[in-house]
Structure formats: C-alpha cells, structure tokens
Design a protein around this nucleic acid. Structure first.
Length: 306
DNA sequence: GCCCAGGTGAAGC
DNA sequence: GCTTCACATGGG
C-alpha cells in the first residue's frame, strides 16, 4: 500500500544547506522516466532536465550510477525529491514480480531503467483531465499555458527560462471558463474548473484518498465530470502510487491486443479483467513498460477490435 | 481536407 | 453490455 510518510534522507548522509546533491541510483533511466508521458513539465536542457516540483525549480542530470540535482535555493532536506523520483525503490525486485511471458520480457528489455514517479495528486489529476484525446506534445503545451497564466512565480537561477509553479486549486477555482479556454484546453475547461471548485470547497479531499482502498479512491475521482476510469487510474498510479492501478489508453489497448490476443476481438472490459489477473501485484508498473514499449519499439499490426 | 491524439458521457440499441 | 457520436485543438 501507500506510504503516508515521505521518504527521508538517511541520517548518516551529510547534513546541511546546499543547492546541489548527488543521489546514487541503480537501473534508473531518467530520460525515459521524465519523457514517458507521466509528467508533462520537464524540459531537456543542455544535457539535463529542468522542471518544477511543488514550488521548487530543479535541474537534474544523470549518469550511469547517479542523479545530480540542482535547486535555485539552498535545501536542507531532500525527501521531497527522492520521494518524487522514487530513488530508493528496488526496481530489480519489483520487475521479478512481472509475469514471465515473452511480451513482458521484451518490454522490460526494451525499457531498462524506466521508473514511475510519485507526483502531486492535484497537478497529476488536472494534467490528465487535460490529456483526453490529446497527444503528449500537446498536453505539455496546454499545461505550460495553464502554468504561465495562473501559476505563482518561483525562485530560479538567473538566466533560466521563466518557470512558474503549477496553479493551486484556489487560483483555478477563481478563473473563468473563458480564461481557461484561452489556455487551449477546449472542452476540458469546465472539467478543470469544476475539479478546482470541488477541491477548494473541501468537497474533494485529495489527501484523504491516499488512505482509502484503491477502489474507493477510484470511485471518488470518477465522480468528477471528465474523469473516467483511465484518468482516474493515471492519478491513482502516478500520484498516489496505488500499485494495481492500470490505465488502459489507446496505446496500452493496442499493446495488449497485439501481444496477448492477436487473433480474437477483445473488449475493453475484458482487457481490464485480464490485466487485473495477469500482471501481478505491480500491474501498474508493468503497464508503464508496455506503454513505453509500444510507443517507442513495437511494430503495430492491425488487430481485431471489439 | 483528413485522421488521430495517454477519453468521457450521453444516447441508442 | 457494446457502439456511435460530439466535444476543441493542433500535428502529421
């Protein structure tokens, strides 16, 4: 289940204020992780990645065995970052829980070091509300419009591209639908507005969902207009870390049909049933491998749909 | 112009 | 239950 306490930096590590820190990691493909359609604000800049976590500007750079982090302001405790990046997760052990079939072996081999992040629920929920029938490039653009229009300025090193924090529920709740539409989100504008109002009024308590069984948390999210099974599962997996959440989008659907049901038509409902039974206790992680694999490596054939 | 995009909800069988 | 359609907008 979920940890309610964020990961802490180990006590034996050096303490003190600093703007850089190096984290030892194994089997961590930072590029695949930051660009695989789970988070939408990371930009590749000069051999590294620049983004915003909470209200902090961050630059990340990876080599074989470590991730180097740089912030704009001195930091005492780095738990917010190790938790976001899930540095302490034993990926090798997790992957051993995947089914030993050929498609899964191929996906794991093709996406070595791909990780799941642990994001802020609010940002994740809104980002995926914006994702429906949009390409990943376009989701990034809409999210950036939204942050530029409504996000608070953050402290960043001189000379860097201007970044703002992801807008708060309270700020978005005050926006008009027309202002939101000017961020190019089209018919999703009323969904974003309603979600912001639900959180601001206290009707939707995103922190409480952390402690609920996954089914109950999913049901609550799906009460929001514009949030169906897929967007709910993205939030449950990428923000809360519910390991069984298994988002099925067009790509995962293509992968499942081609790899596991090449000769017969299978409905979405059956695919959900199959995924719940087949991929083990960390099905959501397996899903991310299939998603990245089908998008970057697989040759797609027409397969029977239902 | 046409098709599709990390979908959803309503309407019609 | 399953299929079809509209919903904004932009990329290929």
């Amino acid at each position: 289940m979920n940890r309610s306490v964020p990961a802490l930096v180990s006590e034996k590590e050096p303490v003190g204020l600093a703007t850089t820190r190096i984290f030892a990691v194994e089997h961590y493909d930072l590029t695949a992780t930051l660009s695989s359609g789970q988070a939408f604000r990371w930009r590749a800049v000069a051999g590294g990645w620049v983004g915003v976590i909470g209200s902090r500007w961050v630059r990340l750079e990876a080599d074989h065995c470590s991730i180097r982090a740089q912030t704009a302001e001195p930091v005492l405790s780095w738990g917010w970052l190790t938790d976001y990046l899930q540095c302490e997760l034993d990926l090798g052990r997790l992957i051993k829980t995947f089914p030993e079939d050929e498609p899964m072996r191929n996906a794991v081999a093709a996406c070595h070091g791909l990780r799941l992040l642990r994001q802020d629920p609010w940002e994740c929920l809104i980002s995926f509300i914006l994702s429906s029938t949009k390409q990943i490039v376009q989701i990034r653009q809409i999210v950036e419009h939204l942050c530029a229009a409504f996000g608070e300025p953050i402290v960043q090193p001189p000379g860097e591209l201007p970044f703002r924090a992801f807008p708060s529920p309270a700020r978005l709740a005050q926006a008009t639908e027309a202002e939101l539409r000017s961020c190019k989100m089209g018919f999703r504008a009323p969904y974003v507005l309603a979600a912001a109002r639900a959180v601001t009024s206290g009707d939707l308590d995103l922190e409480r969902l952390r402690h609920l069984p996954v089914e109950a948390a999913r049901e609550r999210l799906m009460l929001l207009t514009g949030v169906g099974r897929k967007i709910a599962d993205c939030t449950l997996l990428f923000a809360y870390g519910f390991p069984s959440a298994f988002p099925v989008d067009v790509w995962v659907m293509k992968a499942l049909r081609q790899l596991y049901f090449p000769r017969r038509a299978v409905s979405l409902r059956r695919l959900h049933q199959f995924s719940a039974e087949h991929f083990g206790p960390h099905a959501g992680y397996a899903q991310q491998y299939l998603f990245h694999y089908v998008r970057t490596k697989m040759v797609l054939h027409p397969t029977p749909k239902k």
